[in-house]
């Protein structure tokens, strides 16, 4: 290992999870590494556990065996944030009093209480990623960094991606692009495929649904397309009913990306509610509770517009 690589291998980042055998996060079979921390607050977020930068407590009441059988966590909490509901004898977390100190986690024998996020070195992550190296070669897969916002930890992400590339692993990221340009370009120079979100085109509506205007995001994307002409970009839109499931949005994204030949595709990600349960684990409120899913017909129609723009119209 070179001196540079050895130094980079020790860089640490806040990792949420490493997920093997992913088929939706880029070409082939991939290992997706989710990093913690995000600068947006999209109402439909399916990874709420990734939003805050620091490790945080989560609780799955189904796994709690109750105060009578156990009750160990109640003695550990310095904030009196844990309590028992008489109806089922199980513990609950008062999320307002919890400070995410994590002292209750080792006390819980059933892992009902657990923590999202841990510090890992580049080498530790790569050791896990390399377990599936054979599959990457067979399938044309590799490593995908996701989040949260993976470019929010630029030193770690850049070191991880550079080292993966050095070891012959294809690299991809999923990003919303809402970071300073310095961060963005620091990471992007080590990436083969950039999957990036065009959530909403109108700055005001972007602010309403994702927390901030998209001005910096669009500026970053424009600069990225021209600064990294050899990198493949895949634009994506999470299609949210009543928010961005309209032709106008799709057409404006197409108008934005089509001048750049290295934006090779535009994909629609239909809204799903898989993340909803996790809001319960974290004691947070899911804003889109009761939202319907996107009708298949809508998706077909929008996909047709994209296919036409990319010259893929079926005869």
């Amino acid at each position: 290992m070179s001196a540079t690589a050895a130094g980079a291998a020790g860089v640490t980042g806040r990792v949420l999870n490493i997920q093997h055998f992913c088929t939706n996060d880029g070409p082939g079979i991939r290992t997706t590494v989710f990093l913690k921390g995000c600068t947006l607050r999209c109402a439909w977020c399916c990874n709420p556990e990734s939003i805050r930068p620091k490790p945080e407590l989560a609780f799955d009441v189904r796994k709690c065996i109750g105060e009578k059988e156990c009750g160990l966590c109640l003695k550990e909490c310095p904030e009196d944030a844990l309590y028992v509901v008489e109806a089922d004898g199980k513990v609950r977390v008062n999320w307002d009093l919890c400070t995410d100190c994590g002292k209750c986690v080792p006390a819980c024998p059933t892992e009902a209480l657990f923590q999202f996020g841990r510090e890992m070195t580049v080498e530790e992550v790569l050791a896990e990623v390399e377990q599936d190296a054979a599959f990457y070669q067979e399938s044309g897969g590799g490593l995908t960094l996701s989040g949260g916002e993976c470019t929010l930890q630029p030193e770690f992400s850049a070191a991880l991606l550079a080292e993966a590339r050095r070891r012959g692993i294809n690299t991809a990221i999923e990003t919303a692009g809402n970071v300073p340009w310095d961060y963005f370009q620091q990471v992007l120079q080590h990436v083969d495929i950039v999957m990036h979100d065009h959530k909403l085109t109108d700055p005001g509506r972007h602010k309403r649904w994702a927390g901030v205007s998209n001005a910096r995001i669009l500026e970053n994307f424009r600069r990225a397309y021209t600064t990294f002409p050899q990198t493949r970009f895949v634009a994506r839109t999470p299609v949210i009913p009543g928010v961005n499931d309209d032709e106008e949005h799709i057409r404006s994204v197409l108008a934005f990306i089509r001048p750049y030949p290295n934006v090779v595709d535009y994909q629609l990600l239909p809204y799903h509610r898989y993340g909803e349960g996790k809001y319960g684990f974290l004691g947070r409120v899911y804003a889109l509770k009761d939202f319907p899913s996107v009708p298949a017909e809508t998706l077909r129609r929008l996909q047709g517009i994209i296919d036409e723009a990319f010259g893929r119209t079926k005869p």
Binding site: N17, N24, T32, N47, D60, Y274, E276, G277, F281
Partner: peptide, 20 residues
């Protein structure tokens, strides 16, 4: 459990018995 807490891991998970 932890592996299920990232997207697309288990489509049925979010519709489980004790979610919101």
């Amino acid at each position: 459990l932890r592996a299920s807490l990232t997207p697309n891991a288990d489509p049925d998970f979010g519709e489980g018995a004790h979610v919101m």
